[in-house]
């Protein structure tokens, strides 16, 4: 699963040609009328809707709203997840007591807590943020636990010999050791955060791309809908690819 782009000239060009063919086929299907225009607008119509949305429409604000919501929730979840994960990871006792509870919380579909959050807090921006944090914390938390639990026993002995304090152990040995796991977890968390940001916007009517595409679909404005979907795909692509680059850099630096 850890594949992404590689840039050896020819292969990249071939890939671009493939993408052009994909868009071309999309165009042909759309103009042939095999699929109703209301369901499949042409790539040009989508592009025009995108340009219109970004220049005169509020697509920029919507994009910003979604991205900020996603990043705020994700950063908060990462901070709490790493702190809790470190605390649980260094202690075999805590792990013994908490693992089944954590496994259960992780398996719970995060969107299922949305109704509970609505009942508790109401349809507010805080509720959406809370759901994003709750949902996206698990991959980072569990990866951190894993990273701290897998510290080489010899390093543990070294830290004992050096009389490192618990905090010193976390900071100087545990954390550097767990960084690759943590970043992998954070990458998965970011994907979850994006999904929950969209869900939150759709349900709580918060301003963002999620709400925008829902409205576009209700009014059968297919080009706007497609422009929104493409933009959300780009957000997903850029965020996961960015973290993949960080992940690779860290992996190289460790060797």
């Amino acid at each position: 699963m850890k594949r992404g782009f590689t840039f050896p000239g020819l292969a990249f060009l071939q890939g671009l040609v493939g993408l052009a063919v994909f868009v071309g086929v999309w165009h042909l299907i759309a103009v042939s009328g095999a699929v109703p225009r209301a369901f499949l607008p042409s790539p040009e119509a989508t592009w025009n809707a995108f340009v219109r949305g970004v220049t005169v429409g509020d697509m920029r604000e919507q994009l910003l709203g979604t991205v900020l919501r996603m990043i705020n929730g994700w950063l908060l979840a990462s901070l709490v997840g790493i702190a809790l994960g470190a605390a649980i990871g260094i202690s075999q006792t805590l792990r013994n007591y908490l693992r089944p509870t954590l496994a259960f919380a992780r398996a719970l579909p995060a969107s299922a807590v949305v109704p509970v959050a609505i009942a508790l807090v109401g349809l507010t921006p805080g509720m959406v943020l809370g759901v994003i944090v709750f949902g996206s914390i698990w991959p980072t938390l569990l990866a951190t636990v894993q990273g701290f639990a897998m510290v080489d026993p010899r390093l543990v002995e070294v830290s004992r010999a050096l009389h490192l304090s618990r905090f010193g152990f976390i900071w100087k040995i545990g954390l550097p050791n767990a960084v690759p796991d943590i970043i992998t977890g954070m990458r998965l968390s970011l994907t979850v955060a994006l999904i929950l940001a969209i869900v939150g916007e759709m349900l709580a009517g918060q301003e963002g791309l999620g709400k925008a595409i829902l409205l576009a679909a209700r009014m059968f404005r297919a080009p706007d809908l497609y422009a929104g979907i493409v933009l959300l795909g780009l957000v997903g692509l850029v965020s996961s690819y960015g973290l993949l680059l960080v992940e690779r850099r860290v992996a190289r630096w460790r060797r």
Binding site: G18, A216, L232
Partner: peptide, 18 residues
């Protein structure tokens, strides 16, 4: 592969309205 890498990150809920 580029087409796949472009389609794959589309969040599934974004397809819900469509």
């Amino acid at each position: 592969y580029i087409t796949i890498e472009c389609l794959r990150p589309i969040p599934s809920v974004a397809l819900l309205p469509l």
